[in-house]
């Protein structure tokens, strides 16, 4: 037994989970897939007195791709397994960046267990799903025993492994905006020591083009180079109206690298990470643009 001792509660419903959170507050930790939490418990980096298991709450497992009043978003229940999302063809068409990012998340065995909400609530600044959420401007639906609120990605991610989620709140759903532009392209890439490991730097972009080939909408971001996943809305806005010429892309990538704040560790120096930030940003913008151009 590697974890410190704890007791567990199995929630039968979201309401039950919220009630338990209200009662136990800070001494309780929610467990979904557990693919980050269990190693942290094994290393005794976290020692919760209680684990609140939401794996059996079926109401937290859904993907709604039909138009149901949230016309421009796909709603994913927080406890939906990453592998289920990965296999959903309708979702891959509507939120392609999410599907691309998932290809870099862990391995088959961890995606079979890991959840969409778990990765986002864990908020590792190097993780792919928080970055995808940041780039697309996803919304997190947080529920407590008394209220439900919606928090946009830009304020949800507050720091390394830190989010806007209160001690009495449960992440219930993640809402992913769907871009309606016909000529939309997206790309995701990363550099890591081995495929499936955490990235030294990851990058993603989504670009929409008008019929004349001009960029009408752009968003891009970087993981692993700051306290949270970073999106660059001001720099992305600068691309709108351009033909995404080399100069425009190069300058956006250079400025994104300059604005990022990477650290050094065993695997990469800050300077190398900044170099990757520049190179990968340009690469994903170009790749997303190529994909959009191919949709004549």
């Amino acid at each position: 037994m590697k974890s410190a001792t704890f007791e567990y509660i199995r929630a039968g419903s979201t309401a039950e989970a919220c009630e338990a959170l209200k009662q136990e507050g800070d001494s309780i930790k929610l467990i979904a897939g557990g693919q980050s939490l269990i190693p942290m418990m094994a290393m005794r980096l976290v020692r919760p007195a209680w684990l609140l298991d939401i794996n059996e709450v079926s109401a937290l497992k859904f993907i709604t791709t039909s138009d149901d009043g949230h016309r421009n978003a796909v709603r994913i229940g927080a406890c939906t397994r990453q592998s289920v999302v990965e296999r959903d063809k309708a979702l891959a068409e509507r939120v392609p960046l999410l599907r691309q990012a998932l290809g870099y998340v862990g391995h088959v065995q961890t995606r079979n267990r890991g959840t969409i909400g778990g990765s986002i609530a864990h908020a590792d600044p190097c993780a792919e799903l928080p970055l995808a959420a940041q780039i697309l401007g996803a919304s997190m639906i947080l529920r407590s025993s008394s209220a439900t609120r919606t928090v946009p990605a830009e304020t949800f991610f507050a720091g390394p492994m830190t989010t806007a989620t209160g001690a009495d709140e449960c992440l219930e759903e993640v809402r992913w905006p769907v871009w309606d532009e016909r000529r939309t392209g997206s790309a995701f890439t990363e550099i890591s020591t081995r495929h499936g490991d955490f990235a030294m730097v990851s990058a993603g972009a989504q670009i929409a083009l008008g019929d004349d080939g001009r960029c009408v909408r752009a968003s891009f971001g970087l993981g692993g180079v700051g306290q949270t996943p970073l999106a660059f809305p001001r720099l992305a806005q600068r691309l709108v109206g351009t033909q995404l010429e080399d100069e425009a892309v190069r300058s956006a990538a250079e400025d994104a690298a300059a604005e990022s704040d990477p650290g050094s560790d065993l695997f990469a120096t800050a300077a190398y990470r900044r170099h990757l930030a520049r190179v990968l940003t340009a690469r994903v913008i170009r790749a997303a643009c190529e994909q959009a151009r191919s949709k004549a």
Partner: peptide, 16 residues
């Protein structure tokens, strides 16, 4: 395999 799908058994508690 958990319900027919590969998972890591060190990343699950037995009660799960």
């Amino acid at each position: 395999m958990l319900d027919g799908e590969p998972v890591r058994s060190c990343l699950m508690f037995a009660w799960q």
